[in-house]
Amino acid sequence: MNTTEKLKTINNLLLQKSFKVNYENVVLHFAEHFDVGNYSQRSFFRDIKNLKEAIGLRYPTFEDELGPLLRFSKYEDRYYYVRDDISAFPSLSEKELTQIASIIDFNKHLFTDNAGQGVVNKLRAISLENSLSEYNEILPWPAIQLIKDGERSGSDQLKKLIECISAKKTIQLHHQGLSKTSKLKTITGLPVMIKEYNNGWYTGWYLLFYEITGTEMEIEPTINELRLLALDRIKSVIETKIAPKVKLCTLFNPPDYFKYSFGIIRNNIGNPTLEHEKITVKLEADNWINSYLEKYPLHFTQNIQILNKETKEGILELEMEINQELESFILKYTDQMTVIGPENLKVTIIDKLHKSLNNYQLSSQLI
């Protein structure tokens, strides 16, 4: 550990009321958690002195009013901060965490798919875990574990795209497909919305985009003419010098692009008249998925008719577009459900099941 890391660690220990900060306890903490075995008492006092200077520089007004902000209690044999809401290094207090959570909660309309609620939950989890440290001994593992979102590929383009979306500016994109043989393409058009989506493989950002040829003097985008591009495949974003006039219908609402799709992938580019269909699925006897669907509906059009309360047999009805993600979901739970209609979806599922069965039979012959 370098000096800064040691100072930050001691500072964090001072913020945890359950930890008794003195030389003996800090030595044990460094040895157990950082494998530091040569931390001398002289080094500890030097680090305490540096923390006193650092926190004094961060809160000069408090220090003028209260005196030294980091003190030692002979009675308790511990160092402590005189206020609960101060830290030698930038951090968020319980009050600040709560305020930020409240602000995000109030502005949830700026987020999609309950992402705002997810941020609020994480902030509240941080606040909760911090408060628990006041009453419990420090655990060697986290009390709460949340999904690690990770960094977003394509985030360097986000600011520029959002500016162009807000200003209704047409842009020129340099885009490259995921395939190794894909070539860099130049696409011109109007960006209309950024979509964040977790597709099971990774969480990413996507751009909803209306492509133009570059010769139109006026454009009027429609929902089924939009296309979706992954931000991590966009190499550059350039504003066009000559832009057509953008005319938007009052009914044009980009989020409607995803309204009847399972996931985000649609087949509308090659089929601009694409419409949703009535999908009927039988829920088999003794299934468990019915309880799951009741609690977590697949879609807002979902309707379940229970045919037998004891066996949980039922009929699941949906009004959705048929796409690969919907097919994959049905195949994933094919022991729980059977497609009744439409016929084209039923045939597709049967064909894929036959192919899978043939693959297993062939692989068995090779063993």
Rank of each mutant, 00 (worst) to 15 (best):
T4P: 00
L14E: 02
L15D: 12
Q16A: 09
S18W: 06
F19Q: 14
F19S: 10
N22P: 12
Y23E: 06
N25Q: 07
L28A: 13
A31K: 02
E32L: 15
Q41L: 14
Q41E: 12
F44C: 02
D47V: 03
K52Y: 01
K52Q: 09
G56D: 01
G56S: 06
L57T: 10
T61D: 13
F62L: 14
E65C: 00
P68H: 05
L69F: 14
L70Y: 03
Y75Q: 15
Y80T: 10
Y81V: 01
R83Y: 11
F89C: 00
S91N: 04
L92W: 02
T98C: 06
S102W: 04
I104G: 01
F111E: 00
T112L: 05
Q117K: 07
V120S: 00
A125H: 02
L128Y: 04
N136M: 10
L139C: 08
I144P: 04
L146T: 07
I147G: 04
K148Y: 03
S153G: 11
S153A: 15
G154K: 10
Q157E: 04
L158E: 03
L158C: 03
I162K: 05
E163Q: 14
C164R: 10
C164T: 14
S166R: 11
T170N: 15
H174R: 14
G177L: 03
L178S: 04
S182D: 11
K183R: 08
K185L: 13
I187R: 15
Y197F: 15
G200Y: 12
W205P: 01
Y206K: 00
E216T: 05
E220R: 13
P221E: 13
P221R: 05
L229H: 09
A230N: 14
A230W: 10
D232T: 14
D232P: 09
R233Q: 15
K235H: 13
V237T: 13
E239N: 09
T240R: 03
N253Q: 08
P255M: 15
I264N: 09
N267Q: 08
N268S: 03
N268K: 08
G270P: 02
G270K: 11
H276A: 14
K278V: 06
T280A: 09
E284T: 08
D286G: 11
N287A: 00
P297C: 04
F300C: 08
T301I: 03
I306Y: 06
I306C: 08
L307D: 02
N308A: 01
E321Q: 09
E325C: 01
N344K: 14
T348G: 02
K355E: 02
N359D: 10
Q361R: 13
Q361S: 11
S364N: 06
I367E: 03
